[in-house]
Design a protein around this nucleic acid. Structure first.
Length: 502
DNA sequence: CGCGTTTGACCGGCGC
DNA sequence: GCGCCGGTCAAACGCG
């Protein structure tokens, strides 16, 4: 019965303190903080995850190596192995228990198969995002190099300007929207409804959302107040951090600059349940300030990215006044440096969401982008997950990861897509279909342990990655300029098909 | 001693 | 013009 002892080791996620335990014959041991974005979790080298190495031995005849994240899902899906925090098979099991063991084994086999499928999905998604992020980074760096090195070459400048102009054609519309939003408070309040409806089902939903919107608006408002003194020489040279003022633009060149500035000022707010002071997103942050925000008893912490000198990315972390367990993390700016795979997920999420916000092809009859329509169209299946606020000069997309939409909600998505987008490219529609197959599976509340996973901040961050994947697929303008990298763009689509096919 | 955090001061924008 | 507010700075402090 030695083989059955392997079943005694299970992984339990404590959704409250984000710690992962192994249960070895009833002895609970804390391994470490689980981080869906850490290298080790996505690494093929399972041995690097020292704490989970023992998970590798599992069931006879089944591949032994399991990744942390998959192991987590596995055990969460197998309530029989986790529900009681103890082994379901005794070392001295009688023959009468053998039937139960066989049943458990078959169940584990099924679960393992399911996890294999999920693992393939995760790997596919992760690799796709890594690829996309690297393309974005290289493109941005290439553009900056062109700008910086060829000040005397008017042709290159013009080419870059032209490229920028095309790239930010829609953000120009957004600038109109922003001004429009400022000038017309009625419309502003109307757009606010995007945030206020269709959210949490609990009683604090409105308060939470209002608080969140307030924070986002505060960010946006105060983004104007960036002052020259904060810029270090390195930052000035790198052009990565420009004052958040909204200058008046008269020429097309100014407009492109404005669009670029707007692009950098797009904000992504992530709501996730976490008892930890900060969600783990794989980046290195340094705290540079803390303030008590009006109307919120919890302090707001200010962090800046320290992975590279002069990286303009900043984030604010604050607890929701309505629900203390909800951590609101607001990201601003784009990284000016390559990111480790561990940080790629959240960075891709925020980047994709910001890109979606700023480059979404959302023309409307009146010439303005309707933020409601934007949210409804780009995020047709995630009405409870993402929302867009355009009530301030700088847009904010909010990823609400505190909820787990039910299956019925997500099953509507496909229909909504066809309705909103009409018959689109086959690859895109296919990828949506695939995602819609993936998401309900991930969110299905009927799955044992899903709620616990969903409440884990790291899981929610991983969920954000999946969400951004969908967002990126729905919006072909996101992430990379297709004309610059048609091959990769094509590969991306193919990847989606493969993503679903497995 | 170096690095990160804390915290009071300072700044500019905005509303009245 | 004044006060409020959010964001940032930078000196002081703590920790390894």
């Amino acid at each position: 019965m030695d083989g059955t002892r392997e079943h005694d080791q299970t992984v339990i996620i404590n959704s409250l303190d984000d710690q992962v335990f192994t249960v070895d014959h009833g002895v609970k041991r804390v391994i470490n903080e689980m981080d869906f974005f850490s290298d080790k979790n996505f690494s093929k080298d399972a041995s690097s995850t020292s704490g989970f190495k023992k998970e590798s031995k599992f069931v006879d005849g089944v591949e032994q190596e399991l990744h942390l994240n998959i192991s987590t899902s596995l055990n969460l899906l197998t309530k029989n192995t986790t529900a009681n925090n103890k082994s379901t098979v005794d070392d001295n099991a009688s023959p009468g228990i053998s039937n139960e063991f066989v049943a458990l084994k078959s169940q584990l086999d099924r679960v393992y198969t399911e996890n294999e499928r999920l693992r393939a999905m995760l790997k596919q998604t992760n690799s796709k995002y890594y690829s996309l992020q690297m393309q974005i980074t290289s493109l941005l760096q290439h553009q900056h190099n062109l700008k910086g090195e060829s000040t005397g070459d008017q042709k290159i400048i013009d080419a870059v300007a032209q490229e920028e102009k095309q790239r930010f054609l829609v953000p120009r519309q957004y600038m109109d929207l922003g001004q429009h939003a400022i000038d017309d408070k009625d419309r502003t309040s109307h757009s606010d409804s995007v945030l206020l409806k269709g959210r949490n089902q609990n009683g604090s939903s409105s308060q939470q959302c209002i608080e969140e919107k307030s924070m986002a608006n505060e960010l946006q408002k105060n983004s104007h107040t960036k002052i020259e003194r904060e810029k270090s020489p390195a930052e000035k040279n790198s052009q990565q951090w420009i004052p958040n003022k909204v200058p008046k633009f008269h020429s097309s060149q100014d407009l492109s600059q404005a669009a670029e500035a707007t692009m950098k000022k797009a904000r992504v707010s992530v709501r996730a349940r976490s008892e930890a002071p900060m969600i783990s997103d794989g980046c290195q942050w340094r705290k540079y300030g803390q303030k008590m925000a009006k109307g919120n008893p919890f302090p707001r912490a200010y962090y800046r990215c320290t992975m590279a000198v002069g990286c303009p990315v900043r984030k604010q972390v604050q607890r929701c006044v309505g629900d203390r367990s909800v951590l609101i993390t607001t990201y601003e700016g784009n990284h000016n440096h390559p990111l480790p795979p561990a940080a790629m997920a959240m960075a891709s999420t925020t980047s994709a969401a910001a890109s979606m916000l700023l480059s979404g092809p959302m023309p409307s009859a009146d010439g303005f982008m309707n933020p409601n329509g934007l949210a409804r169209t780009i995020l047709p299946y995630s009405a409870n997950l993402a929302s867009i606020s355009a009530s301030a000069p700088f847009p904010t997309v909010t990823l609400d990861l505190t909820n787990t939409p039910n299956l019925s909600q997500l099953q509507i998505l496909q229909g909504q897509f066809t309705q909103d987008f009409g018959p689109g490219p086959q690859a895109t529609a296919h990828s949506l279909y695939n995602h819609s197959r993936f998401l309900p599976r991930a969110f299905d509340a009927s799955f044992p342990g899903t709620a616990a996973v969903a409440s884990d901040p790291n899981f929610t961050a991983a969920l954000a990655e999946a969400l951004s994947s969908i967002i990126a697929n729905l919006n072909p303008n996101i992430g990379i300029d297709s004309k610059n990298s048609p091959k990769n763009s094509s590969e991306s689509n193919n990847g989606n098909i493969n993503f679903a096919g497995k």
